[in-house]
Every structure is written in structure tokens, then in C-alpha cells.
Design a protein around this nucleic acid. Structure first.
Lengths: 217, 217
DNA sequence: GTTTGTGAAGTATTTCACAGCC
DNA sequence: GGCTGTGAAATACTTCACAAAC
């Protein structure tokens, strides 16, 4: 009869996850503005760029502190630094990659990660023919070394690019060796225990949800 | 004084977009169950697989009709067909791809699209060295032919895999030639006019929102 | 017995609107 | 005059809980 309500009616009004997911968007826009030499920006202007209401931006930021100045707006440089701080991006992060098939290789070669401080430092594959090969400067290791290697390097972020059939098993193993954030490219609704964060990259799902609005065509 | 409230207080209680975005997830799970030979499934069981409440699944489905039987559950085969119908997936869709760099090529070679009925039938690139080349059976066309070709083939879905600096411009051109659904891989907060649907694939954003929870490490 | 479909209740999230400050 | 930060109000979404159906 006594339910586990305790967990839900938490005392700390935790920052909503939707808010956290919007912060990188703000950060990116600020970086752009900064590169264009803009020094001050209002929530109004930010909202225009991002197609959202100024109030939402202000409310989101207010979860973390007071970063603006009445009558002026936000200092681009200052807000940018604060957001980086909040998101834990003032440091570099090591990332492990599992699966070096076509997709995995594309991910390794993708030039957009490193500039943002995410460095793929280890790669693993179940296929013995892949093991020992060098891809983008990284030597592919056997799955037998997964736990050992991830733990030894204290890697907390992993990218999963293995076939759907093996993804959950791989994810379970990653969780076991204390990986706390997983970016999953496999088209499965993966399950992870609470402390672990998971985000899915799934282009087919995205397409399938858009065709709903195209039915009439 | 008179605001454009009219648009918001619409009479039709439109299906919430969150609901539409969950349907493909249900569909995929049903396909799996079907392949395993399961014939009937309850919202309870579906919820377990997908880590969501049975009530949510039932409520989501109720926006579109009544597909279950009390005391039994849902016929996997029937619900699957209905969802395909609702999502507009009982037909095949032609897809145009803009940008055949490393990412674009990886997208063309990705084997997961065609089985779901999405066929990349045309590819475009601004680089003259790419134009005329054949990638995965498709001849890369010049950007000069974009409008002409997309319109001629009546393509309504496009994938954008060009550098960030050109993405918005490309998206604008796609919108002009009546593309109604865009899957954007460029790391920019792109803007599209209301009738057009946009989904972003952005691994860096996903990573940046997870590191928030890793700050303590 | 089981499970759906759904109003009503409960949460969560967004937007409003304004005091306070520059 | 312009803009932030924020309680309060409004809206959106989720979950409850139960009558109806099998």
C-alpha cells in the first residue's frame, strides 16, 4: 500500500530535464554571437534566433542564477562562460566508442566533437578482423578489453554504434564499468538504470514522426 | 489589442506533438513483438518494454481510435497496421539528400532507411568535384538543379548534411520547392515556416546536455 | 479474472505581467 | 525608455481510477 511516492515528491525542486536540454542550444547561439563580435544580448534577441519566447529563456536561466542586467541584457561572454560552467564543459571529456562499422567510423572521423571538448580515446569492436586496426589514430580493441580499458582510463561517456541486436548487451556492460552517459545510435529503446543518462540518435524515428504531418500529400 | 490568440485557442484539440513522436516507438516495438511471434500485447507489457506507464500508451492511442479489446489487450498485427496507417507509412517515401561529404555518404550507405520505406533518390552538392560522381547508385547533382529536380520528382522529404554555414540557406531553398519535412544534421538552430516540419540530429548537443549530470565526476 | 478507454485529478512546463533596476 | 527576474496564471501533459467489456 505504501508506494514509492517518496522518490517523486522530492524536496529539492530539481532543474527540469527539458531545461537542461535547452542550455546547450543557448550556449551555441552565444558562441555564434560572440564570434560575430556581439557583446550584449537580450532574451528578446536570443528568443528570436532560437524561435522561443524571451520569458522561457529568462526562466530557464533563473534556475541557475542571475546572469543579466536590467535595462541591458546579458553579457555574451559572461553568460557563455557561466553556461559552460553549469554544463560541465570547462573541461575536456574522454569518450569511448563501441562499434567501428561504417557508422562508428563516420563518428570517429566526424570533426565536430573535438572542438567541443569530446575526445574519442578508445574504440572497441566484436569483430576480430577489426581488432588491431587503426581508425582515425585509434587502435580498435577487442570487446574483451572493454571493462578493463574503460575503467583504467576512467571514461564516463560512451557512444554505442553496434547493431540493434547487441546494443542492450553492450549498454549493460558499459553501465557495469561506471559509464554514466551513453549516446546510443542503435535503433532500440534501450534501458539504463537511474544514475546513467542516455540519449538516442535515431534518424528513422525522426522521419517516421514527420510523415504523420505529410499524410495528406 | 486583439492578439493572434485565434491560432492558439484552436477548436480542434490537435494531437500533441509529443504523442506523435512516441508513435514510431510503439510501432517499432510492435514490429519486434510480431517478429517474435507474439500475437496479443497489453499496454502493461508494452509499457514494460518501453519504460513508460500503461496509461500513457492507452491515452496516446486513444487520440486516434479504439484499437484494443478489454480483458485481452491489443492485436499486435492489427495495431501495427493501424499505426503505420496513422503515420503515413503504408507508402514509400522519396527523400532528397543535400551534401555528400563524409556525413552525407554515410547517410546514403546507411542500410536502415530503405527497409522502413525511405528511399534516397537524389543527392546534391555544391562542390563541382562531387557533381557527376556516383554514390551508392545515385548520381550527385549540382545545387543548380536542386529546385528543378526536387519539384519534378515531387519529393517532400529532405536530409540536410551540409556545413553549418550553408545549412539555413539550403533549408530555405528546400522549403521554397515545397519540401515539407527536413531532417537536419547541421549543428544550427534552423528556422522553418509553420507548415514545414524539422527534426535535428545533433550528437554534440546530446552530449553537452548529459555532461550536466556528470559535473561531479 | 483481465484489460481497455477515458473523464477527472494531479504534475509539469510555459507564459504572463509587473516590480525593481539600469 | 529598456530589460531582467520571478511569483502567479495559464496551458500542456501525465497519471489515476473506474465503468464497461470480454
Amino acid at each position: 500500500m505504501a508506494r514509492e511516492k517518496a522518490e517523486r515528491s522530492r524536496v529539492i525542486p530539481e532543474v527540469p530535464e527539458v531545461v537542461v536540454m535547452r542550455l546547450p542550444l543557448y550556449l551555441r547561439t552565444l558562441v555564434q554571437l560572440s564570434q560575430r563580435g556581439v557583446e550584449v544580448v537580450s532574451s528578446q534577441q536570443l528568443g528570436q534566433q532560437l524561435q522561443m519566447t524571451p520569458a522561457q529563456i529568462r526562466k530557464d536561466l533563473s534556475y541557475f542564477g542571475r546572469f543579466g542586467r536590467q535595462g541591458r541584457g546579458y553579457s555574451v561572454k559572461y553568460l557563455l562562460e557561466e553556461l559552460r560552467q553549469i554544463l560541465g564543459l570547462e573541461r575536456e571529456w574522454d569518450v569511448g566508442l563501441v562499434g567501428v562499422g561504417r557508422l562508428g567510423r563516420a563518428i570517429i572521423s566526424y570533426a565536430g566533437m573535438a572542438p567541443e571538448g569530446f575526445h574519442i580515446v578508445a574504440a572497441f569492436d566484436a569483430d576480430p578482423r577489426q581488432v588491431g586496426q587503426t581508425v582515425g589514430g585509434i587502435t580498435v580493441q577487442s570487446m574483451d578489453h572493454l571493462q578493463e580499458s574503460i575503467k583504467a582510463t576512467d571514461t564516463r561517456i560512451a557512444i554505442v554504434a553496434v547493431p540493434a541486436a547487441h546494443a542492450q548487451e553492450v549498454i549493460d556492460r558499459l553501465v557495469e564499468c561506471d559509464v554514466r552517459a551513453i549516446l546510443n545510435y542503435a535503433p532500440i529503446p534501450a534501458l539504463v538504470p537511474p544514475p546513467v543518462k542516455l540519449r538516442n540518435i535515431d534518424p528513422v524515428l525522426a522521419l517516421q514522426s514527420m510523415t504523420y504531418y505529410l499524410r495528406s500529400l
